[in-house]
Amino acid sequence: MQLKDNKHIGIGFRKDFSEEFLASDVLKPAFIELAPENWIGMGGYWKKQLDKAAEKYPITCHGLSLSIGSPDDLDLDFLHKIKKFIKQYNVQIYSEHLSYAKCDNAHLYDLLPIPFRKDAVKHIISRIKQVQDVLEMPLALENVSYYTPVAAEMDEATFISEIVNGSGCNMLLDVNNVYVNSFNHKYNAKEFITKLPLDKVSYIHMAGHEQISDTVIIDTHGEAVIDQVFDLFEYTTGLLKPVPVLLERDFNIPELKELQGEITRMETIVSKTWKKEHAIA
């Protein structure tokens, strides 16, 4: 994927700040990421904003409703709409969540934890292959944050690895989610990362979160990235080949210069760990 100005860090493109973002050069992302669900079939003002953004920046897509872990059948009609959107905007990376958001024919619009079980692994591998066949491109799946396991029969790292290795999909490594899960489920974040299929990581997410009690962090995307997550990011990038990195900020949007500050900090980190890389495969 060819990134703007040979940088690595992108920003989630949100309607909340799209006007200011497109009218100024305060934010200097290498690319923008958007959820196709929020734009497919949308015309008028927002379509114009999207087209303006697409003229200036490469686009990656991060889906919300594919529901790869759902017991329900895949929504092929929806998948074909995504494919059309991906082609229309020359999207090079399409990622989704290793979770489910639809069950028993009802969309829930949030990410529920899949039971870490062998049969779920097989079920998901089959669905990933189906998705990749339709899209004719690899899917990148994100490790999600979760607040409780459900009916688990294996650990999270094994579950992710078996799915990624068994399906041939790529992995979107969400560093903040690793941090959140390591706090909520009391494991060592760095050890966890080393257990993942790091050779399959094609994309990284970074975000802020909110600690709501002594034992629980909620993955809100509504706060600045904390120092501990930056540290984990630096550690992680040292284990990986260069890949695009995305700063997610969905709520409580600050001044754009603050977001640029976070982007600059990440760019500084990767410029040390990924020296003299100019293009990302």
């Binding site: 669900e37 929020n38 497919i40 079939g41 949308m42 919300l64 409703s65 594919l66 929504d75 929806f78 639809k102 028993d104 024919n105 009802a106 969309h107 829930l108 619009y109």
Partner: peptide, 10 residues
């Protein structure tokens, strides 16, 4: 049972 995968159409 919400049918649309696009929450803004819900």
């Amino acid at each position: 049972k919400c049918k649309t995968p696009q929450v803004w159409r819900m």
